[in-house]
Design a protein around this nucleic acid. Structure first.
Lengths: 110, 110
DNA sequence: TTGACATATTCCCATATGGGAATATAATAG
DNA sequence: CTATTATATTCCCATATGGGAATATGTCAA
């Protein structure tokens, strides 16, 4: 029944390129909405909306200071993505392992 | 407008949990549609549909042998995901680096 | 109180979705 | 040719989407 909501899990939240941009813009820093607006050059409501999704899914945390809201990345929530994809890293790096083996064999033949 | 199509890129394709299951089921092996149907216990059309998306986005390749179609993971296409998420790995592992520093300081004080 | 600033929310709409069920295509065997 | 096996496609529908524009909420300062 329809696509999984973007707020359902980190995989869906991060499928949206702009949401990835927001996380990149944040990096390790704690930034206000306006900081991000400046940095990315988007409209403020757009930034707020994407932050809202990221927050609902736990990818960012929010801290209120005066009239500002400071956001920071909650990297732990990215971990499932890393852990799912990391095992596949061997699939493409293995190619080079094989290349090493082949080169080794050629070396021995000489 | 509207959400980015699932066939647009690996991030969107893999946001769907069942599509991740299909890739896991494949692993390094080359499997027929029926192999996957057996392995996952889903209806055949469902498997075919998900394979179709994965193929369109380049996450699997297809080879025809007789009436069978053999699929295998094209791991290269997962690389962008790995490379996007990997830098964040430091964010959560760093916590332990700091812990090490703190322990080191305590040691010096003694 | 009244502004001014910072941020969030609402309303709008075209669009692609994933699942189920049924059916179509393709290829082999007899 | 026909039946059978292997796989793909079509039709259905409820649903959440992301963008734009406008507006609401919240907080400080004078």
């Amino acid at each position: 029944m329809a696509r999984t909501p973007t707020t359902h899990d980190p995989f869906n939240a991060v499928a949206e390129p702009k949401r990835r941009k927001v996380l990149e813009a944040l990096g390790r820093q704690e930034l206000s909405v306006n900081d991000i607006v400046q940095k990315l050059g988007w409209k403020q409501p757009m930034v707020s909306k994407h932050l809202s999704v990221l927050k609902q899914v736990g990818l960012v945390s929010e801290r209120r200071v005066g009239r500002q809201r400071l956001y920071r990345v909650n990297a732990e929530r990215l971990r499932p993505i890393y852990e799912w994809v990391a095992p596949f890293e061997r699939y493409w790096s293995e190619r080079f392992d094989r290349l090493d083996e082949i080169l080794e064999e050629i070396r021995k033949e000489k």
